[in-house]
Measured scan of single mutants.
Amino acid sequence: MASQGTKRSYEQMETDGERQNATEIRASVGKMIDGIGRFYIQMCTELKLSDYEGRLIQNSLTIERMVLSAFDERRNKYLEEHPSAGKDPKKTGGPIYKRVDRKWMRELVLYDKEEIRRIWRQANNGDDATAGLTHMMIWHSNLNDTTYQRTRALVRTGMDPRMCSLMQGSTLPRRSGAAGAAVKGVGTMVMELIRMIKRGINDRNFWRGENGRKTRSAYERMCNILKGKFQTAAQRAMMDQVRESRNPGNAEIEDLIFLARSALILRGSVAHKSCLPACVYGPAVASGYDFEKEGYSLVGIDPFKLLQNSQVYSLIRPNENPAHKSQLVWMACNSAAFEDLRVLSFIRGTKVSPRGKLSTRGVQIASNENMDAMESSTLELRSRYWAIRTRSGGNTNQQRASAGQISVQPAFSVQRNLPFDKPTIMAAFTGNTEGRTSDMRAEIIRMMEGAKPEEMSFQGRGVFELSDERAANPIVPSFDMSNEGSYFFGDNAEEYDN
């Protein structure tokens, strides 16, 4: 993207840094990872977990959730003011799984939030270390993106479920800051804005008074975040219109849905970061690795190297396929839920299948599930090659597409044709070009129609051997075009429920 120079890199967003050079960025990201790792080690000690239990991804998720809940100030305040039966607002906890007599047992633990905050700050040299908290939120978000298709949420806001490739980060909490905003897809931002506008339509006082002023500035800020994701002048001009509207209503909703559809071809720039579970960072720190000293990046080879040398386990339900569970977590670790499966298959070195073909449910185990038949197995999170994460949407291309997802959002900077089903997408653009945004709409449609099938995206960008740390010898991959490109292809993934 041309304006790259004016933006802070995501590592800076990730670490609240002012302008830093590459070495400083690597050190501050490393410091953040160190903090998460030290916190995780301490929690495993508190909970008396064995090494194996500490490497269980379900335990990692519970521990991450506990610290996120302990620092969720708004919710904590709300819980104190609106006490609900049987919930102690000062405590947080969740299921911890232990191996007892050759069987997995679930144990519900409860801790004072104050105590968890103390352990977290102690692991982070006394700081609140917001960057580390956001990092864990993005890992949870990436896992949700890989596990669930947001059909219901899309339909509720009037969008087409086939636009799911635009929904990265749709389950990120509001408090995820600049680093969170960077990884949100165009569809996620559109959905947040539509929800806001709908509230304004239904509630006369939404934009009024002292609160209304705050609401208005939040609305304009979200519009600017979305505008910054678009790469064409016409899309940005249309966002200006939406932002400046005196009284946002149905016309703005129409414009936003139009823009979301246009992003299936004229893709937005959305950041991709490899955020790993805390149970990967903990053992690495415990083994003596100093992330701050060595430096770390979320968008280069580092996460690949770390996963190459990590042992992570997962509980497996009786009829689940461990290899499929591994694929789910591998995609989440690489922030690749909406990437082209052919690119992923090449990088991973084994075939990556669409969601609907995987015999696996989510990673988390519900409290009512029976533990008797639970097994555990090693997650295979290694890769054959590594590639640089991208934040450009890439230019655009036609490809055989599917009944489910009709476009992709690249996660890796790797040369390819970008699949999208042009006739299906263009069919949504018939007729409606009147109104105050008509010239911009016409211009956007013209650009979409001009998108050429034979153009290559990320020209000359390749993948790298894991021994090639400096990215000196790019390998331009070859793809098996007979395979499906979309992950949520004609899909039956479970729906995400809060």
Rank of each mutant, 00 (worst) to 15 (best):
S367F: 08
K87T: 13
F429D: 07
K357N: 09
A284V: 05
G288P: 10
Y281E: 07
A278S: 12
I25G: 07
V352Q: 09
K98M: 08
N250L: 02
I41C: 00
Y111V: 00
S60L: 06
R436Q: 10
R118S: 06
A178N: 06
R204F: 01
C223H: 12
G404D: 09
I36K: 07
V408R: 09
Q58T: 00
E339V: 12
D480H: 05
G450H: 02
A366M: 10
S245M: 11
Y385A: 06
E465A: 05
Y296L: 13
R204I: 14
E369V: 14
R213G: 01
G490W: 11
R470L: 13
V329Q: 14
T147K: 01
I36M: 12
R348K: 15
S69A: 05
S217N: 04
R355E: 07
T390H: 10
G94W: 10
S392H: 05
P173M: 07
A284F: 07
A472M: 13
Q58F: 09
P322D: 04
R38Q: 08
Y313V: 05
N492C: 12
N432S: 15
L381M: 01
M159R: 12
Q235C: 04
T130A: 04
P283K: 00
R216H: 03
I406V: 08
M137T: 08
M331E: 10
E320L: 04
A263G: 04
Q122L: 05
S314E: 05
R317S: 08
A85F: 13
I388R: 01
Q308A: 00
I36F: 14
R121I: 02
V242E: 14
D128I: 00
K87L: 03
K452D: 09
R243N: 15
Y313A: 03
D340C: 08
P318W: 15
N368K: 01
E294T: 00
F458D: 10
L276K: 12
K229I: 04
P83H: 02
K293T: 09
S326Q: 11
E107R: 14
V190H: 07
R246S: 02
R199E: 10
Q405S: 10
R416P: 08
K7R: 05
V408A: 14
Q364L: 01
Y313H: 05
Q311W: 09
M374N: 07
D290Q: 06
Q398F: 02
I257A: 04
K31Q: 05
R355D: 10
V299K: 13
L193P: 13
E469L: 05
G460E: 06
N211K: 06
G209H: 06
R74P: 03
A336M: 12
G394I: 08
P248M: 10
G268T: 01
I425C: 14
T23G: 01
R461A: 12
D497Q: 00
A451T: 13
G462Y: 03
G228W: 13
D101H: 02
R19H: 06
R38A: 02
N395D: 06
I406C: 00
G187H: 04
R106Y: 10
D421K: 15
M1Q: 10
R150H: 10
Q235D: 09
F291Y: 06
A251C: 10
M105D: 02
N395R: 02
K77T: 14
G450M: 01
I388E: 06
V463F: 02
D491F: 09
D491I: 01
G485H: 15
I36P: 02
D128E: 05
V67A: 03
M66K: 02
S274I: 10
L79P: 12
V67N: 10
A263W: 09
N59E: 07
E375N: 10
K48A: 03
M189F: 02
S245C: 12
T390M: 06
I201F: 12
N432M: 00
S69R: 09
F39P: 00
E114T: 06
R150K: 13
D34S: 03
G362D: 06
N247D: 13
Q364Y: 02
